[in-house]
C-alpha cells in the first residue's frame, strides 16, 4: 500500500484572537510574534488515517508539503510520527496560491511520485479553511474521491470509508487508487515517539522546484490563481457584554435568571 499525504504548515490556529493581526495594505495575515507555525491539525488527521492503515496492513507513506518558508521542525513532524519519506515543493513560486494553483502543484508532484494507492488530505486547512485542495487534486488526476472521512478500512483493493454527513455518516466503497479527505471525527492523533523523532532528525527531505515537476512558474502560486482576494479584515465584536454581579456565584446566577426573564428570554 503506497500512500501520499499532503500536509500544510500554518499559523498556529490556537493563536489567541487578541494576537491575530492583519495588514490591510497587503491583505495579509501578520504572523503573530513569538508564536511558531505548526502543522495544520486537519493535515495531521490525514496523516493519522494513513498511519493507521500502515499499522494494520503495512505500506509506505510519503508526506508532501508546499511553501517557501517551511520550518524544518514543522514539516518533518510527519517523519517523526511514522511517515517514510518527505517531499517538499519549496520555492517562492509555489506560494500565495489559491486552492487551484496549490492543488495543481501537488497533483504534478504526485504524478511524478507515480506509484500510489491512496492520497490523503485534510478536509480543509486551518488557515484559509477553503476545503477544496483534495477535490481539485482528485479532479486533476482523474481519481474518485471521498471527502470528510472519519474512518477508513482497506480490503481487496477497495477502501470502505465512513463519510461524515449533516446528521450522521454514510459508508462509501471506493476502488483504489483514490483520494480521501479526512475530518477531525477520525479521533486522536498520535504523538511522535523518541525513536520517530531520532529517525526524523537523520532523514533529509527531497526538495523539488517547479522545473522538477515539469511545470511553469506562471501556473503556480500567486500567478496561477483563479480566485482573487479583494479584501481581508477582522470582524468587529461589539463588546457590549453586561457583567452580572452578586455577593456569591449563587447570587450572580439568580440575578442572571432574573435578567433573562426581564428580557423575555425565559
Amino acid at each position: 500500500m503506497n500512500m501520499i499525504v499532503c500536509l500544510k504548515q500554518v499559523i498556529d490556529p490556537e493563536t489567541p484572537p487578541a494576537s491575530f493581526k492583519i495588514d490591510p495594505q497587503s491583505n495579509k495575515i501578520v504572523p503573530p510574534p513569538g508564536i511558531a507555525p505548526v502543522l495544520d491539525p486537519y493535515s495531521e488527521y490525514a496523516l493519522e488515517a494513513a498511519l493507521r492503515i500502515k499499522d494494520a496492513k503495512g505500506g509506505k507513506i510519503t508526506a508532501l508539503s508546499l511553501g517557501s518558508d517551511l520550518v524544518r521542525e514543522v514539516v518533518k513532524k510527519p517523519l517523526a510520527m511514522g511517515a517514510d519519506e518527505l517531499v517538499l515543493l519549496e520555492d517562492e513560486a509555489f506560494t500565495e496560491g489559491d486552492s487551484w494553483s496549490t492543488a495543481y502543484a501537488l497533483a504534478m508532484a504526485i504524478k511524478k511520485l507515480g506509484d500510489y494507492d491512496l492520497i490523503f488530505c485534510g478536509r480543509q486547512a486551518a488557515d484559509w479553511d477553503a476545503g477544496q485542495v483534495g477535490s481539485a487534486i482528485a479532479e486533476l488526476l482523474g481519481l474518485p474521491s471521498v471527502t470528510v472521512a472519519q474512518k477508513i478500512d482497506i480490503s481487496d483493493g477497495q477502501a470502505r470509508v465512513e463519510r461524515v454527513t449533516d446528521d450522521g455518516y454514510e459508508v462509501i466503497e471506493v476502488p483504489l487508487p483514490a483520494l480521501i479527505t479526512v475530518s477531525n471525527e477520525l479521533g486522536e492523533v498520535r504523538y511522535p515517539n523518541i525513536r520517530g523523532i531520532m529517525a526524523a532528525r537523520k532523514k533529509e527531505p527531497i526538495i523539488w522546484r517547479p522545473a522538477d515537476i515539469g511545470v511553469d512558474a506562471s501556473e503556480l502560486g500567486a500567478a496561477g490563481r483563479r480566485t482573487r482576494l479583494l479584501k481581508l479584515w477582522l470582524p468587529v465584536r461589539e463588546g457590549k457584554c453586561q457583567m452580572i454581579e452578586g455577593d456569591s456565584p449563587e447570587e450572580q446566577a439568580v440575578n442572571l435568571a432574573l435578567k433573562l426573564r426581564e428580557a423575555k428570554l425565559l
Binding site: 499559523i11 479553511d129 482573487r228 479584501k231 470582524p235
Partner: peptide, 17 residues
C-alpha cells in the same frame, strides 16, 4: 465573503472565470 482563519478574519473573494 467568507470567514477564514477559523473565523478570526473575513475575506472577500471574486473569480474571473
Amino acid at each position: 465573503t467568507r470567514p477564514v482563519y477559523g473565523g478570526n478574519a473575513l475575506a472577500t473573494f471574486t473569480t474571473e472565470s
